[in-house]
Design a protein around this nucleic acid. Structure first.
Lengths: 155, 155
DNA sequence: CTTGAAATCTCCGAACA
DNA sequence: TGTTCGGAGATTTCAAG
């Protein structure tokens, strides 16, 4: 049978070494090819070639510095569950883009259409965010009391 | 009045240039001091000194490669809201650590004690995760249908 | 994929404004 | 603090096997 969709852009051509490299880079995105090579028993050029391929294929979407929100004055971390109607979804996405305090947005199944990650310096700012997104529908806000060390993806 | 706690480890000594550097590094964690210097009109040694200070202070907690879950076969992304009792919290944290598919865990205010981020290759694995964490209390699982481009922290 | 050399690049330190 | 300059070291690229 012929699949409906062309070719999935899924790249299944990952071997164990690729997975190992990806895990290592999730722990430290600045390691050099030589350093990684030592951990996977491969020469530096071989590692560099693999990394470049992974970047080209989009397996590695980028590199980022992990910043501690508390240390930059963002003492309040909250998640907002937002219930809205199908028709308002495009409008909602545009709104999220316009609110810098919304650092991530998930579209969900179930009653709650969206889950938002929010960082603010104070409750007044949080209130403004809640009020703003609340215009789209019922919003339920929870404070994040603690975050546990994020882990790399289970490869 | 004297504050109860010694000295907050909050580092307020961030100026506009520090914030700019942090934002740039969140977009690309591999830029060199010279590259950043061009964007903030500072010399390479000045930028390097600032970055080292930010790392020492813990403002920059690390660097990581951003990997696309779909591209590595993790086609299912879900969030689990877990309600449990105060007494079981330590046990819960230990459990989360032991489940690789749980890539992040937030402790929340409100009815739901925890919010978990879960990545699995298939529904069978998801089911196992749900059953496992469900032993701690009532769990509500939602699939993540779509993720919208995460933004850097609002500095 | 490996080795080895060449070309870059990156960071560090000194001297100074 | 910051700047420029110079050098040491590291990293990537490119060849050839």
């Amino acid at each position: 049978m012929i699949p409906k969709h062309p070719a999935p852009d899924r790249t299944d051509s990952l071997d164990d070494i690729d997975r190992k490299i990806l895990t290592i880079l999730q722990y430290d995105g600045r390691l050099s090819g030589a350093d990684i090579g030592r951990q996977v028993n491969l020469s530096q050029p071989a590692v560099s070639a693999r990394i470049q391929r992974l970047e080209r294929q989009g397996v590695i979407k980028g590199y980022t510095a992990v910043v501690d929100p508390h240390q930059v004055g963002l003492t309040i971390h909250a998640v907002i569950r937002l219930r809205t109607t199908h028709a308002k979804i495009p409008q909602a996405l545009a709104l999220f883009q316009d609110i810098p305090e919304v650092t991530a947005a998930y579209r969900l199944t179930g009653e709650d259409c969206f889950l938002l990650d929010v960082h603010t310096p104070d409750t007044a700012t949080l209130q403004r965010v809640v009020d703003t997104v609340g215009r789209l529908g019922p919003a339920s806000t929870s404070l994040v009391l603690d975050t546990y060390p994020p882990k790399p993806l289970p490869l």
